[in-house]
Design a protein around this nucleic acid. Structure first.
Lengths: 356, 356
DNA sequence: GTTGGCACTCGCGCTAAATGAGTGCTAACG
DNA sequence: CGTTAGCACTCATTTAGCGCGAGTGCCAAC
């Protein structure tokens, strides 16, 4: 459903580009439609409003601008934003202070969920938009160790540590009656035997092992396999999770001034599956992704834009971090922000992996 | 800050009470001010609108009703609601179906946070208001066992199981270099030695032990104490947490039709500390608590009401469950709902404790 | 004590007119 | 030929005015 507009823009001369750029910049900061007068008065052009009107009419014909109604100024279209982002935008580098607070937050905790949660909050507060973080799927997660703790009869806490330092806890219900000692042994065995494999691979091996001769006779081995399968099965459903932070930030935006729009938007942000689908589709891409309005079904309906970047190692992308907001957002500032945060997260993950 | 209105209501005769009751019931269901005509037409009274007007004027003088403006009907005041709740309300028992779905949700999981999360969602969906659950403070939490798992050098996952079946995981950073075996032993020791104590008690004992002679010589004991203290200190900060669920439910309520009110309300719901303060102040009370509008600073500003009940055992109250909504809410239905849910949670906790 | 009648208040919704920002087009200018 | 001033036109938004109707308070009669 995601299909970016293909724009070459050869049909725009230097002046038209400048005009488009100025209109978008002004509109992003004010939220109002921009008229020829306002444009003339900004000083960038030595042209009269009438001349600018001609240029604007051309830009409208080409689909970069549109008028909300006849007697209003002009507003960028999705196509206009896209062109702006690809050819016109002057990215504003992050300030030292901004970089610092990102680095701080990322290195603040070593618990993975906490870091991601913090990342989402940070995105939201620094951008004044909605921050989203798409959590890693556990299936592609290589483990370093797996331990089991007796919580109650038939209830076992399973603690999985990933090679990337990520820690996952999951309570497993099992019909096996196991002692502390047995759990200890099982943990040791699985940790040493399956270290470096993904949960999916572990599951397959365990299932294969069921058929091996040793499993038929060794009772301890039987228990190990049974518990291992229970644990892996119980953990894997928890796989696609989306952290959404700062939804209240949209309350102040003029585009959501009326209660109806507000309501729709809030409900939209609760449809996490759709958002996850979109983000997941970008998981393969190396660099920053920007999705504008009509470029996907979901964003079209709600007039959103999404700025997102994947994080994780080269070989295995883990998830996405990003921002959701109205199409009118400060791409020039937010793109570097999301990019930097994505890189910071990736760096952290790689570090943890090497620290092993 | 919480001060309930003191109302005796001796100054109301039977007819005035009936009128007040009917006005509040109608206003709760419609949200509109109630006029004398509408009241006459409902059939409960064999009186003309003019007579009802006299009664209503009296009720207004006594502060139970008020007029939004001269030419409108009348609306209950906080005092009116308070009187209604204490003397007039006919609680509507929960249907078998409602009880069933509460019991279902409560017994669905055995993980404590999950149950509380579910409880909050349930409250929200059954009441169509905002559901809140105030999480237990860990300090007053008696433990059954405490285990430690090596996650990385200097990073240890601590899994604490409470006597009530509650499980808490916390990653602890420590400067101690510990092996799996040592962790295993420490876990066993702490679990057997301190079972049944609260985290606070454990902390004190550990600190006391520092001075004992054995600790000075036995290296293992030193490590145990050090790790134990680290773990307890690291866990306790996570103590007052508020789960807020279903904030979007207020989007449909007529009292929040305009964007400004909506905005204020959302921001208010984010001030979790204030809400926690209010709920905490009720922790000592045995039964259902209802707080209306001006009865506390916080609810006054936002025109909220809160219906809440504590849960936990007789001896140690753990937290509160409740509903937040506009003053105009269906107390007759919601009071029994919150009450039942609080009891269900308490029952579950007690069961788990006995199952030991 | 209850009721019908009546004058009065005032929020709400409707329509009409005024406002003003912005456009497109055309004709003149360098 | 590009640029500009002028002008008629459009249309969302604001403002004012008006009537409706729900509701009240009071009074006099029953």
């Amino acid at each position: 459903m995601v299909q970016k507009l293909d724009i070459h823009g050869d049909d725009l001369d230097a002046r038209a580009r400048e005009v488009l750029r100025e209109i978008i910049v002004q509109h992003i900061s004010s939220g109002e439609p921009i008229g020829s007068r306002a444009l003339a008065k900004c000083g960038h052009f030595q042209l009269s409003p009438a001349s600018l009107r001609n240029v604007m009419a051309d830009l409208e014909d080409l689909g970069y601008l549109q008028q909300p109604h006849t007697s209003a100024g002009r507003v960028p279209t999705d196509r206009g934003y896209r062109f702006f982002i690809e050819h016109l935008m002057k990215s504003r580098a992050l300030s030292a202070h901004e970089r610092e607070s990102i680095d701080d937050q990322v290195s603040h905790s070593n618990e993975f969920d906490e870091v991601l949660q913090a990342a989402s909050k940070l995105l939201s507060s620094m951008s004044d938009q909605v921050g989203v973080v798409f959590m890693p799927t556990l299936l592609q997660f290589t483990i370093r160790s797996m331990d089991f703790i007796l919580v109650a009869e038939n209830k076992i806490m399973c603690v999985i540590v990933g090679t990337n330092g990520m820690v996952v806890n999951k309570l497993v219900e099992t019909r096996l009656a196991l002692t502390r000692d047995e759990l200890e042994k099982i943990g040791r065995y699985i940790s040493s035997e399956f270290s470096g494999l993904t949960l999916d691979q572990i599951r397959r091996r365990l299932i294969l092992m069921t058929e091996q001769e040793r499993a038929l006779h060794d009772q301890m081995m039987q228990k190990t396999i049974a518990l291992g399968i229970d644990a892996v099965n119980d953990v894997t459903p928890v796989q696609r999770e989306l952290i959404v932070e700062g939804a209240t930030s949209i309350l102040t935006k003029p585009e959501f001034a009326d209660a109806g729009a507000l309501r729709k938007t809030f409900l939209a942000l609760q449809e996490k599956e759709k958002l996850i689908d979109i983000l997941e589709s970008f998981l393969g891409e190396e660099d920053l992704q920007i999705l504008i309005g009509s470029e996907s079904d979901f964003t079209q309906v709600h007039n959103f834009s999404i700025v997102a970047r994947r994080y994780g190692t080269q070989s295995s992308p883990l998830g996405m971090v990003g921002i959701i907001g109205p199409m009118r957002m400060e791409y020039a500032r937010l793109a570097p922000l999301v990019d930097y945060l994505g890189r910071a997260l990736s760096r952290k993950i790689e570090e943890q992996e090497h620290k092993n």
